[in-house]
Design a protein around this nucleic acid. Sequence first.
RNA 1: GGCGCUUUCAUCUAACGGUUAGGAUACAAGAUUCUCAAUCUUGGCAUACGGGUUCGAUUCCCGUAGGCGCUACCA
Length: 511
Amino acid sequence: MSENVNPRRVRVRFAPSPTGPLHIGGVRTALYNYLFARQHGGDLVFRIEDTDSGRFVPGAEDYILEAFRWLGIKFDEGVSFGGKYGPYRQSERKDIYRKYVQQLLDAGRAYIAFDTPQELEAKRNEIPNFQYDASTRMQMRNSLSMPAEQVKELIEQGSQYVVRILIEPGQDVEVDDLIRGKVVISSSVLDDKVLYKSADQLPTYHLANIVDDHLMEITHVIRGEEWLPSAPLHVLLYRAFGWEDTMPRFAHLPLLLKPEGNGKLSKRDGDRLGFPVFPLEWHDPKSGEVSSGYREKDYLPQAVINFLALLGWNPGDDREMMSLDEMVSLFNLEKCSKAGARFNYQKLVWFNHEYIMQMTDAQVAQLFAPELEKHGVSAPMERIETAVGLVKNRVNFIHELWDNCSFLFQAPAEYDEKSLKKWWKDQAAQTTAELCGFIESQPVFDGAELEPKVMEWIASKGYATGKVMNAFRVTLVGAAMGPHIFAITDFLGKEETLRRARKALEVLPKE
RNA sequence: GGCGCUUUCAUCUAACGGUUAGGAUACAAGAUUCUCAAUCUUGGCAUACGGGUUCGAUUCCCGUAGGCGCUACCA
């Protein structure tokens, strides 16, 4: 049971609905589709499923496209990419769907129903577990229960109607899932789903999805687990159309769950726990509400991708840090887990740290330079690189670099109280003054040469190394923090070093 | 309620009948050190429960319990 049984070129799709920002779970689904397509040398299609005119949100499509650009997930064809299977926006395929709906109607695999939403609502209130199926359809107002002339008349009068699939009860429908194996559901529990809506004269997801996947020659449908219950319906639709021989293989991915508590990951969780659930920041055009995004929160796209890839899949060994290309060669649907995965964003923070560590100082400096400018600091790239090299191991995010190295670019304006309390006492002022004198008297300043001399001097004076050095550190940094002290003096240079130390001696208490 | 999926450390997961049940994150301790980190070492932490099948079950089957999803003229 593998792909080589299927001689067709591998074609997969990611088909979001433009109803808002792209959810992070959708990003993972797209990622898996991308990995699968690349690995098999196939195509990844970007289709827009805008068949719900009521929920359409302007800007959502562009947002989704931009998110994938940022993440580095590339599509081969589809909306904005072109291709010979278009149009790729479902709202532009109305005529196609109309034709196939008619085919189903003609074949007796679907029927027309006149029940209004209000009537259905009333029915549901009246009967506890009402379902529109073989047991109830003859009591409803449809082309099965009514005489042909009446149906014709109603249509001519302009009555609104939907088209429903005719489900034959009593047969076992089998879905062969690449991740879960065989799933069997009795058609008796399925209902006569609406395929074509009267409200906006568009097909529902179920119909559009099958028609498009067939016409676009999709070979594998990799989607979220929420679609598993309707997969049998989809199989039945392929059967009704007579397309069963080219029906795509299905793979239903486990869902992303809340980091804590019950339920699947939602927008609210991000707000509550302090992490984004969207790739990019989103400004809702209707409510004006702003939802944070990973890009704006300073996460690296590689870190997001890497973290997401491992939520529900593993390469089969212990490796965790992987480039997109590595993932492409390692990916395997059979290695996908079946149970939902909690969204443990702590680990994403760790990934971000690891990727910063993995980047060269020059790469990090490029990202940090704009941040520096925001703080009113302009420095040669070389200086920034050096600074970054000194402190990048202690940050999880690029923006945290500032707090860790601002003192390299700006003399301390004030001194951290706690640090002073701990280190600026006893003979701190005196030793610092003496140290300044010693350093000034030395013919060398380079840390590698100066450090042993200073240590020797401290020992000869009988001082405690920690006390002398930390007092000195506070004068340079403004706090008891930062990299190795001689790395700092090297960066600042002799003049600036002594200037800062003496400034502190003026400002800080002598005793 | 009905239907389906699912169940290994707190979390992500490995072990596709035989392992001292492995790794990573997080947490804790220690080492290092002029500070804060980083780093290294160490530590604690899991096979939901009950039945089978088998010489032997984390692994296969059944049941129970928990979790998740679906149950719209939404996708």
